[in-house]
Design a protein around this nucleic acid. Structure first.
Ligand SMILES: [Mn+2]
Ligand SMILES: [Mn+2]
Ligand SMILES: [Zn+2]
Ligand SMILES: [Zn+2]
Lengths: 157, 157
DNA sequence: GCTGATAATGATAATATTTCGCATTTCTAT
DNA sequence: ATAGAAATGCGAAATATTATCATTATCAGC
């Protein structure tokens, strides 16, 4: 028997690759973890709450508990497979660590998230931490506002 | 009878001033609101959770419910008397709006909070929002790290 | 200074998010 | 294939915050 299913179905591709990805991170390649990784790679919005992920798994007919989603996210975060954000909503939002570090613009009306990189800010942050004698471990920068689409919507009353 | 008590006791000073402050903000000058304002002005740490505030009020023998603290914080935030932060801990942290806008450095070990102002970052943020067509309403920047005291503590094992 | 309309409060229940406990299942190194 | 360790799903618990509602306090108008 082979874990890697015949390649007639795109959705079941590179199961072997993700398997390796997890092993390399020191995590057992369990079904829930594989499913979650796959889902996060193939989803529209890169930024998802635990509930979002859980619901999508249900839609796909997968039997994964919400507690497992939370556990797996915490583990993925620990091995740097995902980042956790705390937007103003208060709940945790996760995203796959694919590209490199970036910060976020969040629309307060529709929740749309844009990503940006600004090296000058990154450098300045380190400078500030140093000035206060802090050993910087992390940082979070969120810019909140109204996205172009939502501005337009409220203008045509 | 007069609301402003004789000035023998420092703790009861400027009740009249805070009274006016609240009225000016369009809020009724109720006892809980006055007590909370006073507490926030005279407290050590400028950054407090609702629970922190609630406990301090209890210590002072005031009879204020936790729900009221949350309600009052939300109202104070709405009239710009306080700011609400979401540090990574997950819960809301409030601070009196006394000086001008600033951002925060947070120690992940002991929770110590340092404040800083960095005009270049402020300007760059606006520039980024504009680039994406967002009408910027707010932003939050938290730098996490280990404060000098905590570094020392962990070095002398 | 009283009074009544109105708004605010405290206690408690409810909600939302996240974690825990534990019996059962799944992985994986042999 | 098997056994031991680790992970899972479920439900209960813990946290943080908000809503409900009967009671109380505030304050504009007298
Ligand atoms: Mn992102
Ligand atoms: Mn501050
Ligand atoms: Zn929008
Ligand atoms: Zn510290």
């Amino acid at each position: 028997m082979n874990d890697v299913v015949k390649r007639s179905n795109g959705a079941l591709n590179n199961v072997g690759l993700k398997n390796t990805e997890l092993k390399k991170a020191g995590l057992k390649a369990t079904l829930p973890r594989l499913k979650i990784l796959e889902l996060m790679e193939n989803s529209e919005g890169r930024h998802m709450s635990a509930e979002d992920i859980y619901k999508k798994l249900l839609e796909l007919g997968e039997d994964v508990g919400l507690a497992t989603v939370y556990r797996v996210m915490t583990q993925f975060e620990a091995v740097n497979l995902v980042s956790r954000h705390h937007f103003d909503s208060g709940l945790s939002v996760f995203e796959l660590n694919e590209g490199s570090h970036h910060d976020h613009l969040v629309c307060e009306k529709c929740g749309k998230v844009e990503e940006f990189v600004e090296e000058s800010i990154e450098r300045t942050q380190h400078k500030i931490a140093k000035k206060f004698g802090f050993k910087m471990t992390d940082h979070s920068l969120y810019i909140y506002g109204i996205c172009p689409a939502c501005q337009e919507e409220s203008s045509r009353t």
